[in-house]
């Protein structure tokens, strides 16, 4: 019984980890950059929804949509104004995105102040199914996350833009030669990444806490997941996200609660030692 409860909790958490990591893996694959500012879009998503729900009194659906659309637009701007010029210089990208993340954190403190914020859950209560407890808020967030992930997968598989994105990720040179506007795809992918990070935050902010530095921990986890999954592999990323969540919840119950993060990184290091390219990194690309 305990095991079932733990696995279910882990799966619910895993869906949200997958959503967070998905954007990062797309950006990484398509742009070949280490974007240290990825967590910022998560933070922004949470603050936007806080602003729309608490300050302006919007309902959470409208607030959520506005938040992710804003994050998308900011992603477009950042790519165009900041990243485009330095995209080929890995070191500059890392420094700039890191500085940008810090600067934005300061801006958030300036605009919204530094106190911790919380959002009310939009699904209240708990389901009890034969002794297994399911928090409705986590269920709803998980369901929306899964829908978003499936939409992204379909989009990659079926649409012209999605295919072009995969092509750029797998074979940039070839993408240029068939006439794909690689820079445009990169810009849009970056914005889609921002959109996904923000949507994870919209789904998680009623569960967690909203504060300026909230984006760093998901950034770290997303990087761990992406590396475990094999850089840029969508399938690997999704599997690694669920693996992370399950490792966390199971190891904290059966081994030691303070080891939940350590266990994941131990697994990560072991996988990297055995398979340097990650679980699904044997071939490149999305």
């Amino acid at each position: 019984m305990a095991f079932i409860q733990l696995v279910i909790s882990g799966v619910l958490q895993g869906g949200l980890y997958a959503l967070i990591a998905l954007g990062l893996t797309l950006t990484l694959g398509v742009m070949r950059i280490t974007d240290l500012s990825y967590g910022v879009y998560y933070t922004l998503g949470a603050y936007f929804s806080f602003f729309f729900i608490i300050k302006l009194g919007f309902n959470f659906v409208l607030a959520g949509i506005l938040s992710v659309v804003l994050a998308f637009l900011i992603g477009l701007l950042v790519e165009r104004l900041l990243l485009r010029r330095i995209i080929s210089d890995e070191l500059s990208v890392m420094i700039l995105t890191f500085a940008f993340a810090y600067a934005l954190e300061e801006i958030i403190v300036f605009v919204w102040g530094s106190p911790f914020r919380t959002l009310p859950p939009y699904a209240i209560g708990t389901l009890n199914i034969g002794g297994i407890l399911l928090e409705k808020q986590r269920l709803v967030s998980f369901a929306v996350a899964v829908v978003l992930i499936v939409l992204v997968l379909l989009f990659l598989k079926k649409t012209r833009f999605g295919k072009a994105l995969r092509m750029v990720s797998q074979q940039q040179h070839g993408a240029y030669l068939v006439g794909i506007d690689v820079q445009l795809i990169q810009r849009l992918t970056f914005a889609v990444g921002s959109f996904l990070a923000a949507s994870a935050a919209v789904l998680l902010s009623p569960i967690y806490l909203v504060y300026p530095a909230m984006g760093w921990s998901p950034l770290l986890k997303a990087f761990g997941i992406v590396i475990l999954g094999g850089m840029g592999s969508v399938k690997g990323t999704i599997i690694a996200a669920f693996a992370l969540a399950l490792i966390e919840v199971l190891s904290s119950y059966y081994i030691n609660q303070s080891l939940s993060q350590v266990s994941f990184f131990v697994v990560l290091i072991l996988v990297i030692l055995i398979r340097p390219s990650g679980l699904f990194g044997n071939r490149e690309g999305v």
């Binding site: 295919k163 072009a164 797998q170 040179h173 070839g174 006439g179 999305v286």
Partner: peptide, 30 residues
Amino acid sequence: PSEIVRLGISQCPEGRKLAPEMTVRENLEM
């Protein structure tokens, strides 16, 4: 480059430069 292709100049590059994780059909569609 995308405009060049539109003008009617196409290149079949050295090393093929295919997308390895896409199907043959998808590669052709690209």
